[in-house]
């Protein structure tokens, strides 16, 4: 029995009233976090559980908000009706497993390509854009005051932040310079009300069933800012998984996303702001991909990192299509 399995068994007995755990296995998803699945051994039968924890239990990435905060975000989201996995236990120092938490396993699909192409999700694709709008409207009612530790950033501050990261990389990308000029010249004003923003709400981070959205996952870069950011990010081209004529996650149209958002109580969507956030999304993902080169040469010299770094050019062509076609 591995040490991890041993300690998780202890947690299951001590905190969750189970007899132990079975079937521990590492899932491949999650580049910045470890994700494990196992079953709680309970009198009523096995209950599947997901463990999210920092790599090796301790390493925490620079941008992530911390797994304890992520667990509290899930609990807060559940209270306003956002579909999320129920948090079962937040790891404590005594557990000896580092930072992380246990949550309920939600059955479904997260692989964007399958959600976009598989016949199994044909019905879901007709409702997903609107559902995503409805879910985001509820998500944006979460109270930022509950999370004073989260970064607060205006659109202009976000652009300045990514520009600084890009410039520090020391590698010239004329297309990025063009995009930063455009983003600076066309920035939406500071929002009337700063909201809790998921920050990574996109196809790939949503658990999808044939009926639609079952859970919103990966809250690790949540922050406080302009709620339009979430509506732009899910339309950013890389998250369409090749179905570029269906801008919302490769499954739907912007008009349905916005209609769902407004019908569920979200603020009216200004078209030109939504477009700005889409350009910003390509810029942001481009800078993040480009940053993988430093990560590859530093802490994580994996082939996967190297290959993501080489996806920077996808964003360069997306930016040209948005700004220079």
């Amino acid at each position: 029995m591995s040490e991890l399995e041993d300690k998780l068994g202890e947690v299951a007995r001590r905190h969750l009233g189970a007899r132990g755990i079975t079937g521990l296995k590492r899932l491949t998803a999650g580049a910045t976090q470890e994700v494990w699945r196992f079953e709680l051994d309970e009198a009523a039968g096995p209950t599947p559980i997901i463990l999210r924890r920092a790599p090796g239990g301790t390493r925490v990435s620079e941008t992530a908000i911390g797994l304890e905060t992520e667990a509290r975000l899930l609990e807060s989201a559940a209270r306003v009706g956002v579909p999320v996995p129920a948090v079962r236990h937040v790891l404590e120092p005594d557990d000896g497993l580092g930072h992380g938490f246990l949550m309920a396993f939600v059955e479904g699909e997260t692989l964007g390509g399958r959600i976009v192409k598989s016949e199994e999700f044909a019905q879901a694709r007709t409702v997903l854009a609107r559902q995503c709008g409805e879910v985001l409207a509820r998500l944006h009612t979460m109270d930022p005051a509950e999370f004073p530790n989260l970064k607060r950033q205006t659109p202009a501050e976000l652009v300045a932040q990514y520009k600084a990261i890009y410039q520090a990389s020391g590698w010239p990308r004329p297309v990025f310079d063009l995009a930063f000029r455009w983003l600076e010249a066309n920035s939406p004003p500071e929002p009337a009300e700063m909201r809790l923003v998921h920050g990574d709400f996109r196809n790939g981070n949503l658990m999808i069933g044939p009926d639609g959205v079952r859970a919103v996952l990966d809250w690790e870069i949540a922050h406080v800012g302009d709620p339009m950011e979430d509506l732009g990010w899910i339309c950013t081209n890389p998250w369409r998984f090749g179905a570029i004529d269906r801008p919302v996650g490769g499954f739907g149209q912007r008009e349905d996303l916005w209609a769902g958002y407004e019908a569920a109580g979200g603020a009216p969507v200004k078209r030109e702001h939504a477009h700005w956030w889409e350009v910003y999304g390509s810029m942001r993902w481009g800078v993040m991909c480009a940053g993988m080169t430093a990560a590859f040469r530093g802490a994580d010299p994996s082939v996967e990192r190297a290959v993501i770094a080489r996806r920077t050019s996808e964003n360069e062509i997306d930016l040209l299509r948005l700004l220079a076609s």
């Binding site: 369409r240 090749g242 179905a243 570029i244 080489r310 996808e314 299509r321």
Partner: peptide, 8 residues
């Protein structure tokens, strides 16, 4: 880098 990328 990505000759199958749809936007390309």
């Amino acid at each position: 880098d990505q000759p199958t990328y749809a936007a390309y």
